[in-house]
Amino acid sequence: RSRTAFTAQQLEALEKTFQKTHYPDVVMRERLAMCTNLPEARVQVWFKNRRAKFRK
């Protein structure tokens, strides 16, 4: 699988949600996936990586 390049709009939506909660539930992730045209699995991995970045 190749690396996913996120658009500015996708990142904005993801970051906005991350500010609200670092652990979105499956419903919220699926809604984000639909809004951003990304698979739910990519949204889940983005949050996992973003939490790791946040802890540093």
Rank of each mutant, 00 (worst) to 15 (best):
R1D: 15
Q9T: 09
Q19M: 06
E30V: 05
K20S: 09
S2N: 14
Y23T: 03
R1N: 15
F18M: 03
D25T: 03
T21M: 02
N49I: 06
N49W: 11
R50T: 05
A41N: 11
L11F: 06
R42Y: 08
L14K: 01
C35S: 14
V27N: 04
L11P: 00
L11I: 13
R51N: 04
R42V: 14
T21E: 08
V26K: 13
F47D: 03
T4D: 15
P24I: 04
N37D: 10
V43I: 13
M28Y: 02
K53E: 14
T36V: 10
R3H: 14
Q9F: 10
L32S: 03
A41V: 07
R29G: 02
K16N: 11
A33I: 00
A8S: 15
P24W: 07
V43Q: 00
P39L: 03
T21Q: 07
L14G: 02
E15Q: 02
Q44D: 10
M34C: 09
Q44M: 09
T17A: 14
A8N: 09
A5I: 11
M28R: 06
A33D: 06
V43D: 07
R50D: 01
V45R: 11
V43H: 06
K48M: 09
R29E: 07
T36S: 04
A52P: 06
A52H: 14
D25F: 01
R31S: 11
T36A: 05
L14S: 03
Y23K: 02
Q19K: 09
N37V: 01
V27A: 14
R1S: 14
R31V: 04
F54S: 09
V26R: 10
L11Y: 05
K48D: 03
R3D: 15
S2R: 09
L32T: 00
Q9N: 11
Q19P: 09
R1I: 14
D25I: 05
K20R: 13
R51L: 02
T4P: 13
T7C: 03
Q10H: 04
E12L: 05
E40R: 04
R42K: 14
Q19D: 10
E12G: 04
R3K: 15
R29H: 04
A52V: 05
Q9R: 03
E12P: 00
T36C: 09
N49V: 06
V43F: 03
T36I: 13
Q10G: 02
K53I: 10
V45I: 05
T21K: 03
T4A: 07
A13V: 15
